[in-house]
Nucleic acid binder design. Structure first.
Lengths: 164, 164
DNA sequence: TATTGTTATACTCTATAACTATA
DNA sequence: TATAGTTATAGAGTATAACAATA
């Protein structure tokens, strides 16, 4: 267990992290807000996903993800196909235009990070990435219960089995 | 310089960081949004500050900070005193109630982080904190120029002297 | 004329609740 | 009855621009 001062300093860094996110978001295409870029990135990484799975991966409410998805579909970057396993759901995947945009976004990400972190060592970048992932996992899925049926405090059973 | 895949993975972790921030924000007093907590924390740490200095420390526009400050002043956590050096400005500091709230917030932060990161080693917590600070510094002050008069790149004078 | 701060407006992201269509 | 998704509404955070008061 870390010391009190350690935790307080970490909290301070967490609360100031917004500056980094804004630094990454600046320079995205005007019609591609950060949330859209995140959705596209996840779809490139995972292939086909449902809205609920995307919400799970970003740890936000499905209602929020629904709007993000609507935006990228409206702009023609993502296609919705019927889900053969469940008529209520649809499968999302990148369109050809979406793939082209992702090529640009990927380039933007690398250039921007290189610009700001060019003086970092390879090992430091890798370590930061690993610690960020671990931190996110330590916080688990912190959004409020999706449905009021289960009690608010649920130590486990959070990210299991999207049923698929 | 890190590999392309490294940078892309880091970008992914950065974009997913919101879940951690929300995890920390959940459980704050209802009338104390995260931005208010951040302002109070900075004032406890630095003593007296101007609105413009707070904006600098959080790397947000002064107009935004002006509203955050108005909120904590309205709720009686922060007092505004005349700035003897500049009649346009006022010096902000914690009120007695603000100090009491900070005691609670500080406890909340430690308990929450302990809850989520209790299994982390001391060294890992310290390393994460250090890397987050370095990342923030690498991105410098990424908000748009406060005024169109000065050039967008202003490398220093950002996070000096936590004083502690 | 320049700077500190405030206010008005607009946009992004988020959550809750009510709704639909399907299971 | 329960679940996948949508939509309406509200709140928090941010930026830009126009403005006030002081330097």
């Amino acid at each position: 267990m870390a010391a009190r001062a350690q935790y307080e300093e970490l909290a301070r860094q967490i609360s100031a992290f917004g500056a980094v996110k804004r630094g990454m978001a600046r320079g995205l295409p005007a019609d591609c807000p950060p949330a859209s870029a995140a959705v596209l990135t996840l779809l490139r990484q995972h292939g086909e996903l449902r809205t609920s799975q995307l919400a799970e991966l970003m740890a936000i409410d499905m209602s929020v993800m629904s709007r993000h998805v609507a935006h990228v579909v409206d702009l023609g970057w993502v296609e919705r196909h019927p889900d053969p396993l469940d008529g209520r759901s649809r499968l999302l995947c990148l369109s050809e235009r979406g793939r082209r945009l992702m090529d640009e976004l990927s380039e933007y990400v690398v250039v921007t990070l290189e610009e700001h972190m060019g003086d970092w060592g390879d090992a430091d970048v890798a370590q930061l990435t690993a610690l960020l992932r671990r931190l996110r996992e330590s916080f688990g899925d912190c959004r409020a219960r999706t449905h009021p049926h289960q009690s608010p405090r649920q130590p486990h059973e959070t990210t299991t089995a999207p049923t698929k």
